[in-house]
Design a protein around this nucleic acid. Structure first.
Lengths: 233, 233
DNA sequence: AAAGCTATTGGGGGTTTCCCGTATTTTTGA
DNA sequence: TCAAAAATACGGGAAACCCCCAATAGCTTT
């Protein structure tokens, strides 16, 4: 397998879509799409080979908020065949529209995770018979997996916006206190444990929330666990 | 590519090493190793095809604490060829010993991440010429990547199954509401979203806490994520 | 039919958290 | 080197959360 080195292509958004097109041609796929997201930073970046009409429709209708090929697959470790999503209401909703734009509801999405909570999703879709799709998938899934890793690795290491918000580094006190919170302690408890005021505990929790871009402490705890900064207590 | 379904093999630790052996045979690899870890909790589970002599040496010398094929690769997104680790002091130290046990210092490690901060590392090693290794790697890297995902997915979900007997079952509403809490919503927000009273939301949260044996909601969120009942929002 | 679980709503009141400040020390960057 | 930023620390007051209680309804199990 030869990997097209993304870092050697001209430096612009176009190189990613160009890469996706090459993946399509190589493996006989109709369309490919990549979505890179950083939940802790709240950022999403997407590159697709779809037509502009579908792209604008997708954008206008806010389908990104309910697209199950994003929100279901991002919780998975292994690739997810879209046939496993068919029962979802949102799936019906998104792909009922997609049909009007000549897009198939047959595809697969491959999740890739980085060490800081970042998630990459590479999707491939093709309009053909079920049997043909299954056969094709078994042949190219390994390659697609490598492609997914490659593009995600390149995007997160090159995207300046992402990389600036990339490292949510918690201070010693912050992760220490957040760990106690995950262990079920109150701010007063933690203050007693660390021999500081419970007011101070609250300040550290606040800055932890800000760094993790979390609205509430429970959300911050969840994200910190997801990233691996703390463990469930 | 045909994937050996791990879940159909006899239920024991042996099936993982058996799987690794099959990977070796299929791709002409000397040895394969898998390490599943929870970095925040500091727990590591490993399955290897190495001989018992090396295993005990590795254990006795505490090489797990400094093995760069674990600690360097777990920060990477893409597969790491061990040639990139050669400059590390710890690499020299670990593999100087390895040579005495007939193990090669030529290999690759593939990192895989799950949604709960869990990390799986699949390593493959072979004693041959540099050129031969590079050529072989380019052919099998896609398959290895799929294998890495497959084994990590299986290990993680089987751990869930084994521990699910000891874990509670949340009702639909409870997990639904807990998921919204993990997404940073307040009780009032959730009540509006679900079109129910915020008092009802609080009741469900309370029963969730009781079922999860959690003192606080943040702890409940953390545990639910750790168990896999919800995902970080 | 009664018991048990889930889902729903509400009152009252204590507890906890959260947002607004201020201040000192340490670290970082220009 | 010196200023800016971050980390650490503390407090008042408002908002949110949590605990005790009671009540209704649907649905499954015994």
């Amino acid at each position: 397998m030869e990997i097209v080195d993304l870092s050697t292509l001209p430096d612009s958004e176009a190189r990613y879509t160009e890469f996706l097109k090459q993946v399509c041609e190589k493996h006989g796929i109709d369309h490919a799409a990549y979505a890179g997201m950083n939940p802790a930073a709240g950022t999403v970046a997407g590159y697709v080979t779809y037509g502009d009409d579908w792209k604008s429709h997708y954008q206008d209708q806010g389908l990104i908020m309910l697209d199950p090929t994003l929100h279901m697959t991002k919780r998975s470790i292994a690739p997810v065949d879209w046939s496993r999503l068919e029962r979802s209401d949102n799936f019906q909703r998104v792909f009922r529209d997609a049909h009007d734009f000549g897009l198939s509801d047959q595809g697969v999405t491959i999740p890739v995770r980085g060490p800081y909570g970042d998630i990459g999703l590479l999707s491939a879709t093709r309009d053909c018979s079920r049997e043909e799709w299954k056969k094709q998938l078994s042949h190219v899934i390994g390659d697609l997996q490598s492609m997914a890793v490659h593009i995600h690795d390149t995007v997160v290491s090159s995207d300046e916006v992402t990389s600036s918000l990339y490292h949510p580094t918690l201070s010693t006190r912050e992760s220490e206190i957040l760990q106690w919170v995950a262990a079920g302690k109150s701010q007063q408890d933690i203050g007693d444990i660390l021999s500081i005021s419970h007011r101070t505990v609250e300040v550290h929790l606040r800055s932890s929330r800000e760094k993790l871009n979390a609205l509430t402490t429970p959300q911050a705890v969840g994200r910190a666990i997801g990233i691996g900064l703390i463990s469930p207590g």
